[in-house]
Design a protein around this nucleic acid. Structure first.
Lengths: 146, 146
DNA sequence: TGACTTCAGTCAGCTTCCCTGACTACTTTG
DNA sequence: CAAAGTAGTCAGGGAAGCTGACTGAAGTCA
């Protein structure tokens, strides 16, 4: 494509993101959490401490409620979540994380922290801070929700 | 947990990337290039000026050669690429971009440039430069190939 | 030269993810 | 209470990816 460092800023962002994601999934698999998929993880990530409604999960993950329902079914079978009736609305049920989900989250969080330390070691404290600052600012005009 | 936002640096990178991708696809669709998918685009992007082998495309896009073959089939039907025999190796064929592909690329490149200008306007010239610098450095330890 | 090995690409069959459309059950509101 | 809105499911389908098994061509080496 282009000659020099001619990659677009967008692509330059995607490369480290993808590398991080790969690391997290590898670590989860190594720790025995190999029975869920990236799509399921994306939903699971968004479950709040008190549980979250299916419709809410779907909206946040930007998928249809049908897809979310399918993914939650699989997560339920694998023992990561359970569905409990919502006491405040008899139409709804709350998707709650099970202990297995929190255990996986602890592993994932540890890897993210480790990778960020590696990045900081490579960039130096100053540049890492600038990077986060620029990205946080950029979020203001690129984050469609929040 | 940082003060500015609790999001990991990886997620912070993904947000603008996704926003850029959405913009590019919307612009392509608006320009009439609505007959290909993101997956097909990811393959098409990697076709060199003189054409590229299927196996090479698969490796670069990090998919199997079967999947790549399937996507190239679709691109061929839609008129974006054609396959020609490789003169230097009778086993292989070169996937070459057709004029329609280059036209789409021109549209995409224009949108990328436009979005980058918007980002620079929001961040300021200095911060944009720092951002690209940090990301380029980060590529050294996160880009699995090159 | 002939026997292995390697590489390019295809075929067949499968899973996962995600969609639309149509539906039931319950809540809220006028 | 009737109408409108919301939570979730069911049915069906398409896109994208995988593995495994294969053909045909090239390269290697005794």
């Amino acid at each position: 494509m282009e000659a020099e460092s001619g990659l677009s800023t967008g692509v330059l962002m995607f490369i480290p993101y993808r590398a991080l994601e790969d690391r997290v999934f590898a670590a989860l698999a190594a720790a025995g959490f190999d029975d869920f998929t990236p799509a399921q993880a994306r939903v699971m990530q968004r479950i709040g401490p008190q549980g979250t409604r299916l419709t809410e999960l779907a909206a946040q993950a930007q998928i249809t409620k049908q897809t979310a329902g399918f993914l939650v079914d699989q997560l339920e079978k694998a023992g990561y979540v359970r569905r409990v009736p919502d006491p405040t609305d008899k139409r709804a049920r709350l998707v709650c994380g099970a202990e297995k989900a929190w255990a996986a989250k602890r592993v994932a969080d540890a890897v993210v922290a480790e990778v960020e330390r590696e990045w900081e070691a490579h960039l130096g404290k100053r540049r890492m801070k600038q990077l986060r600052e620029a990205l946080t600012l950029l979020r203001e005009i690129t984050d469609p929700w929040a």
